[in-house]
Write a protein that binds this DNA or RNA. Sequence first.
DNA 1: GTGAAAGCGCTAACAT
DNA 2: ATGTTAGCGCTTTCAC
Lengths: 336, 336
Amino acid sequence: MTDTIRTPVTIEEVAAVAGVSRSTVSRVVNGSTAVSPAALESVRRAIDELNYVPNRAARSLASRATMAIALVVPEDTTRFFGDPFFAAIVSGIHARVSRSDYVLNLIIASDDPHDKATAYLRSGAVDGAIIVSHHTSDSFIDRIAAAMPVVYGGRPVRERERDYYVDVDNRAGSRLATEHLLARGRRKIATIAGPLTMPGGIDRLEGFRAALDAAGLEPAGVEDGDFTSDGAVAATMRLIESGTPFDGLFIASDLMARGALVALARAGIRVPEDVSIVGYDDSPVATSVVPALTTVRQPSLQQGEQMADILLQLLAGGTPPRVTLLETTLVERESV
Amino acid sequence: MTDTIRTPVTIEEVAAVAGVSRSTVSRVVNGSTAVSPAALESVRRAIDELNYVPNRAARSLASRATMAIALVVPEDTTRFFGDPFFAAIVSGIHARVSRSDYVLNLIIASDDPHDKATAYLRSGAVDGAIIVSHHTSDSFIDRIAAAMPVVYGGRPVRERERDYYVDVDNRAGSRLATEHLLARGRRKIATIAGPLTMPGGIDRLEGFRAALDAAGLEPAGVEDGDFTSDGAVAATMRLIESGTPFDGLFIASDLMARGALVALARAGIRVPEDVSIVGYDDSPVATSVVPALTTVRQPSLQQGEQMADILLQLLAGGTPPRVTLLETTLVERESV
DNA sequence: GTGAAAGCGCTAACAT
DNA sequence: ATGTTAGCGCTTTCAC
């Protein structure tokens, strides 16, 4: 029962209690084999007894490594933390990092030039970073990438020869979705897209356009839903109010599809009778709405794991693949 | 245009370029007033030119402070990151910390005795911690609290005289919700509770029971919805299948209310005609479902800001209030 | 106002 | 197998 905050125990004290030198304690802590069983045992006991935890600052100053990885997320926390898609990404990253010797450190960065988070990362607080959900305007990213190995979740905004990233084949996925709508006889197809400042938003819109193009059709409407549920409610209203009729709707995320469903219901438009909709993600949202969403499944958990894995390889001095593209599949439910 | 990762610039190089000693550079970096305008200027220029960022490890080793705060979240990332309630909490914390000299550092901790996150925190990586959404079984918390100042989001599981926390008056809030159902003539009232391993879950159930008790009624059912949408779908089904009729439902979070709405719709039960429901949180979810939820509003953003503020006060050597209880209000919409 | 010097707690040669 | 020594990059007295 500890009632106050104690001053931390140092390696020196452990050495004294164990009756060995600092070096031997350090060897034990770092798992060196060159330690006699007797010394090992007494050091272990001393560590337990004193409740010793090595000081990170000192350790990383001397070893030039922090054994920490940052997951850098954008400032619009509400969008990020409210989307089950990111929950899966974070889960995947955390799962993979847990299996390594590194700790994960989630940092909220902003594009403010005086942003403390960016300075924090550049100050040697972590050995590498994973950057997700970034916008074209995010310049802090370059400053981070100049200081340490970086892996991107999704194609980077301006792709360069040296960028490592793990993405889902967004064009193929949205094409799949749109073709499904076409195959079911829908001809007046609109879309609620993600923001065009984000690669994922751009790529999904392209796939949508390509599929319509191949069928000799024009979009019945294109609205930006901002990857949020509320944004999609507004986008759907704009679509309805525009007066252009539509009988099919491709929506670039399940979360936005939920918003669209709400707006459609309010307007008395039935799904799938009046309009068929296909979402994207196959996140938990897809099955928690009525009607359950036909959607494009992307392996988000796996995407997170891969990103972490690639960064880990980079930190270990390996040569992982620069680009990893994950496949999507169509999941048919009740909304088409 | 930097193509490779450079070796970091040290204070020594800055001093050389500026033509002063390390001490003077350090004074400038730390905002000491005792520096001549000329020296200040040349140091600033050197820092800019070299793109200098002080090494954190060295700095915190020497100063015994990290200027970093941890936000410790539980391991079930899917639940945490999928709930808009937490998005608001994180937003509030981040907003307050942004206005200070500290950086925020989100850490996922688990109860595994070998958990690296706990060791990370105990190794002096941060100066203080905010702990949210913890369970009765989370023992890692004590180990963290023994090493640094801690502020809890919500009443701690086992409250002690020295614990600082910011909570919403959960009992009053759930009582408010239940009384509203009663006032509208509902008499067979059931509840979908949060897990009883979490203070928030316990307190809201107590308020619910207290309100019914005061009216001389018994609950028409109590099911654990686990604070997730899916958990609430299952809980609602159990309620329906139990055969005990109910005409009112208090649900301990809006996210769970959404799940309940789905289950109710599938069973052909109309809201609010057949059963009235009241949620809890007034998160964005409340207005993105049909019918829009009557719910208990809690100031989540403000709760986050307060937690950060109190920790900041603690770190500054102040004496903030040990317990802060935020008020709730009922927001009437269409589900009652 | 400025510099010299000591030291924060640890790792990593280098001896032995 | 173990101890000694020299830093890692910074802050912080202490002189001047």
